[in-house]
């Protein structure tokens, strides 16, 4: 399981990588919901690390405009992002599929992976059912799927989708050859559950920020290192996450 840390700039990216994050996810928290960062910032982050450190780019929740989104995805590829995440809120399934199909077409000839994202709490925002993410990713020939949350009020992923439901979605996606990622205000106290579900990637920000404040705090390497260690201890079985019957 890889640790993905959301960052807003190169300083935070360095803290994340020095704390042993596997992926830095560049985003912009100043934009509504989750927005994209500026190309120079992404270029700077990508240039700072070897290819083994994945640099993902989030487009956040995208508008229902396939051409605009496809061009943004193309931009992420031009910046040599490892992956680009396209999230949907107030969009129908068919429109989301159309947008992703155009994104896939925009990435032809590129090594950048396309990740379809939905939000576990999208019902609060009139969005599409997050459980459609596997179907959406598969039908659009995306490389992976992500389930995140938009609500940042203390509730997290597991307040909106249960462990069995997430486990089912993750297994189903893996069967289809998709990479799987879960995020959404995740904390160390969620790691037992996450290791039982076993997505390929776990995304955090608040948990690795000063005072656990995802907006005002900044990513700190010591917190990243602690989170990484806690994840590894569970993956190695040094902290048990299963009951005897499991």
């Amino acid at each position: 399981m890889m640790l993905m840390v959301s960052v807003q700039n190169l300083d935070e990216a360095r803290e994340a990588v020095n704390g042993k994050a596997d992926i830095v996810d560049v985003k912009n928290l100043d934009e509504v919901f989750i927005g994209s960062n500026y190309p120079p910032v992404i270029r700077e982050v990508r240039a700072a690390f070897p290819k083994e450190i994945h640099v993902s780019v989030t487009l956040g929740s995208v508008p229902n405009q396939a051409g605009t989104v496809a061009l943004a995805v193309y931009g992420a590829a031009a910046l040599h992002a490892t992956s680009v995440k396209v999230g949907f809120v107030d969009v129908s399934y068919d429109d989301a599929l159309h947008i992703l199909n155009e994104c896939k077409r925009a990435l032809e000839g590129s090594e950048t992976k396309l990740i379809a994202a939905t939000f576990a709490d999208s019902h609060l925002y009139g969005g599409i059912d997050p459980k459609l993410v596997v179907k959406l990713a598969s039908e659009s020939r995306s490389d992976g799927m992500l389930i995140d949350t938009l609500t940042k009020d203390g509730r997290n992923l597991f307040d909106f989708i249960s462990e069995p439901e997430l486990a089912k979605l993750v297994t189903e996606a893996k069967e289809l050859g998709l990479s799987t990622a879960l995020s959404g205000a995740l904390k160390i106290s969620n790691f037992d559950t996450l290791v039982r579900i076993n997505p390929d990637i776990v995304g955090v920000r608040g948990a690795v920020c000063k005072n656990e404040d995802r907006y005002k705090g900044r990513v700190e390497r010591s917190a990243v290192a602690t989170v990484k260690k806690e994840l590894e201890l569970r993956m190695e079985g040094k902290i048990p996450v299963f009951t005897d019957s499991e």
């Binding site: 069967e175 993956m235 190695e236």
Partner: peptide, 15 residues
């Protein structure tokens, strides 16, 4: 090798 892969085998079998 490893608990994550064991999880995957068990989850897959169950499904």
């Amino acid at each position: 090798v490893g608990i994550p892969n064991r999880v995957d085998v068990c989850a897959w079998a169950r499904r």
